[in-house]
Design a protein around this nucleic acid. Sequence first.
DNA 1: GTCTATAAGTTGATAGAC
DNA 2: GTCTATCAACTTATAGAC
Lengths: 197, 197
Amino acid sequence: MARTQGSHSDITGPRIRRAALRLFARHGFAAVSMRQIAGEVGVQAGALYNYTPDKQTLLFELMRDHMDALLAARAAEAARAGRDPMARLENFTRHHIRFHIERPDEVFIAYMELRNLAPENFAEIERLRHAYEDELETILRNGVAAGDFAVPDPRVATYAVIAMLTGVNTWYRAGGRLSLSEVETLYWDMVRKAVAA
Amino acid sequence: MARTQGSHSDITGPRIRRAALRLFARHGFAAVSMRQIAGEVGVQAGALYNYTPDKQTLLFELMRDHMDALLAARAAEAARAGRDPMARLENFTRHHIRFHIERPDEVFIAYMELRNLAPENFAEIERLRHAYEDELETILRNGVAAGDFAVPDPRVATYAVIAMLTGVNTWYRAGGRLSLSEVETLYWDMVRKAVAA
DNA sequence: GTCTATAAGTTGATAGAC
DNA sequence: GTCTATCAACTTATAGAC
């Protein structure tokens, strides 16, 4: 449905980002046209360019905002979890699952659309992802030093744990056989044993 | 470079599939045009339609061939691995890593382009993927019954292990710090411990 | 089996009226 | 800030010559 003319800068911006997020996740960045996004929001295609210089920047900002939110949430969680490696690893495991399952579109885009980023944008997203991975690697190294964990290669274990946890997004559906809390516990059981001394 | 006219049905077909595979993996199905594929092969766009009825079928057949090859390879490996659950799980782990790392483009497409499949094609690929998952789930259930494994939820553990192992493709590069054989051993160590009784 | 030519429609982005 | 109109280029797929 079309909109009447007028000024709506305060709400149109977020609506454009939400519509783009949903459509990019469903159909892929390349398959979605600026006209489709505009149609979803209820404006004409030309109006989008008041909010983003181009389609590429729209994609990049969705991914960067997601990674910023992830790192900010981790910083807050890490402060709560204390210093014990086992407690920190459990906190990381449960928080990763919860944070990612709450943002399926963002997670999907952040993994699938890396190849559609311009090189400088790709480098920035990779930098943020690396910062996230580094926290888990540090937890594992501290646990090894404390004698709690036996992890022959903390970097590889970091990749393995993150891939395993993010995989929840490919199958978990709310209202299914298991509650999210039960899923968290099942994965924590596997992570704990996989790195156990 | 353009090709002169002539008949090349025996080689053009495979070349089209290889070019489409490479381009879809690099840029995404929606971002690749039939002209790009034709250009890579050295024919005009119209000639592609001697080999595929449309772009969608080209994608589907790449994915189906990959899943068929995976299931055939598994059947051959399973025959070699015997009946012991521990031996079968190690065989599955190492073979999954090796098979997937040898086919990065196929794996990328099989995971990323599911959303671009027509519904009936999607259902077929999902059926094949499910058959692959079922083998691992059966291994885990047999290991639990034999007292070798402690796995509270074999279906969830199946998802977790497969996601973890496929994750190797996102970071491993030949000629890097670790050989593929070392990587296999690191992952087998984590899988073994994660499901241990 | 491949070519050229074409149909019919879509694309990202811009210009200027309001 | 949004609209309409527009551009030049691109898209998948087909028809018919060779």
